[in-house]
């Protein structure tokens, strides 16, 4: 079930969102980023997919998990900010659905992630055309989930798909409608296949020669979540905090274990692991690809390494 928003009421709707909580949306300056909205006229949905995916609002690059005082540890019980994310695209939203699987759908949910998730409303926008030539979400079986509301632009109005009760409350004043909005189509396609037979393929090496291990692909991936934990402690009192920071499988230190052994000691092993984790290992385990086809890892790669083309080539020889 959904609602209908007339085009002339679009700004009124944004104003309503802004009045409810901190509103973040794509804003274009030197590039497009999700930023706090001061003026709704700054919101720009035409500036391409924002540089950093919305995972930053749930898994920040660095966060304090607990405080240590007088030998006791205390989980921080700070209330996360109430926030509305407007203008996220389905690739980013599916990314959150995948992170939910890992951080919520478990006997031991991650409290920090959970609190942020519970205090955030996600309002998506459907892509009518691909925001970038690198998009390939059309091949990634995106699902209509994990958002509260999603706007789909039609000729004369917006159809708002309502997915949660929170979302329903925000649009209860709008007229009802029922419409099965189409998922985005992309020109770029990933030819999905079982990659195990190609584990040692020489094409990995071609990509690997181009990789500078900068980690931008994992940092900007809507589903990369690997992290490291460490303590910042006053050596005298023992008081301090435990922090979690985002790590990357492209870092050599990532697989270093006690004693100094490094499991993935070459760049090739690290690069291949990232790709296979996204489109093979995760699928083997959860029956769903971890990649949502946003194309950021290709678009923002210094060398424009394109794992999609690489995988597509695997049949040709």
């Amino acid at each position: 079930m959904g609602r209908v928003l007339k085009k002339e009421d679009y700004k009124k709707f944004l104003q309503l969102l802004k009045s409810k909580a901190e509103l973040v949306a794509p804003i274009t300056t030197d590039m497009t980023r999700f930023e706090v909205v001061e003026d709704i006229d700054d919101i720009n949905l035409e500036g391409g997919n924002p540089f950093f995916p919305i995972k930053k609002y749930f898994l920040p690059n660095k966060e304090t998990l607990l405080k240590i005082k007088n030998g006791n540890t205390k989980v921080i019980e700070k209330k996360p900010k109430k926030r509305i994310i407007f203008g996220a695209r389905l690739c980013d939203i599916n990314g959150i659905a995948i992170l939910d699987k890992l951080f919520l759908d478990h006997k031991y949910p991650d409290e920090n992630y959970k609190k942020k998730r519970e205090n955030t409303i996600i309002i998506g926008v459907n892509c009518l055309t691909s925001p970038s030539e690198y998009c390939f979400c059309g091949s990634m079986d995106l699902k209509k989930e994990a958002y509260d509301l999603l706007l789909h632009e039609r000729e004369k109005d917006y159809y708002i798909d309502v997915h949660t009760d929170y979302g329903a409350m925000l649009v209860k004043h709008l007229p009802e409608d029922r419409f099965d909005y189409p998922l985005p189509k992309t020109e770029k396609k990933l030819d999905k296949k079982n990659l195990w037979p190609f584990f040692a393929d020489k094409y990995w090496e071609k990509d690997n020669d181009l990789c500078v291990s900068c980690q931008r692909c994992t940092i900007l991936c809507p589903t990369c979540f690997c992290f490291d934990m460490y303590d910042r402690v006053n050596p005298k009192t023992g008081d301090g905090e435990r922090l979690r920071k985002i790590d990357s499988c492209h870092s050599k230190d990532f697989t270093e274990v006690a004693g100094g052994h490094v499991f993935r000691d070459t760049r090739l092993k690290r690069y291949r692991h990232r790709v296979l984790h996204k489109v093979q290992f995760f699928e083997d385990k959860f029956d769903r690809s971890m990649c949502t086809g946003c194309g950021r890892c290709i678009e923002y790669c210094h060398s424009k390494i394109d794992f999609v083309t690489t995988i597509n080539k695997f049949i040709e020889h």
Partner: peptide, 14 residues
């Protein structure tokens, strides 16, 4: 022991 790109990208610098 990470490249400059890590912090740069995390700070969302063009």
């Amino acid at each position: 022991n990470e490249p400059v790109c890590v912090e740069c990208t995390q700070r969302e610098i063009k």
